[in-house]
Amino acid sequence: MLNEKREFYLALSIQHLNFERRMNLKLRIWRQRDANSKGALVDYEVKVNPHMSFLEMLDELNETLQQKGQEPVAFDHDCREGICGSCNLFINGRPHGPMQTTTCQLHMRHFHEGETVVIEPWRAKAFPIVKDLIVDRSAFDRIVQAGGYISVNTGSARDANEIPIPKIIADEAFNSAACIACGACVAACKNASAMLFVGAQISKLALLPQGKAERKATGRENGGSDGCGGFWSLLQYRGLLG
């Protein structure tokens, strides 16, 4: 494990040599006025600093566009530390780009001079486009509303230590619960399926003793929700759930 990490850091220090220069990139960005309009890829040229994050690169583009009186590129973003799950760009053929991280944690040092970067929204029937790169991911909320909870009213809980949970189970449950609901699994899946998202919700509930009481009821509802199954998908888009 540590050796793998060392190699990762070694790779970083090599890339570090390229830091000084400004990079020229050609962007091809999906622009679409609203849900009902027709969209198209539009070309932009930007000069970037490799230290920038991908979203900061887009911020700069947007500032330039606004100064010219043009509308900024609409994209979802918020915490910019990889946890809120808002950012969702399909960059050069991959969700969140080349680094298996969230878009906000992707930095321009992973691109090279003169590269063409294609930026598209998530493509799935379940995620209709709202504007430009923004899509509607409320389908995820509806899945959780269908049974992704433990029915416990405020105040009715027993002492937190009353039910011991083996560390290994708690850790497993955490791994599933750590899903940030960005939708990359749907975007990456060739069938645009939400199996990984649903799987993460269900395995957390199934692992914890608290979730077991109503397992059958909630499981059934999830199984019946449109187009989403409960088992782990054929495609493991790993790294985004961890």
């Binding site: 091809r28 999906w30 890829l41 399909f90 050069n92 053929g93 991959r94 294609v118 598209e120 493509r123 799935a124 029937k125 379940a126 990456a188 060739k190 069938n191 645009a192 399926s193 187009g227 054929l234 495609l235 493991q236 888009y237």
Partner: peptide, 25 residues
Amino acid sequence: AINRKARPVGYAYARPSENSTWASR
């Protein structure tokens, strides 16, 4: 047929080989 309908508009540029095998697709 369902899978096709799940993504009515495809990507202009996608690299599905990054996370799936040729056979699976």
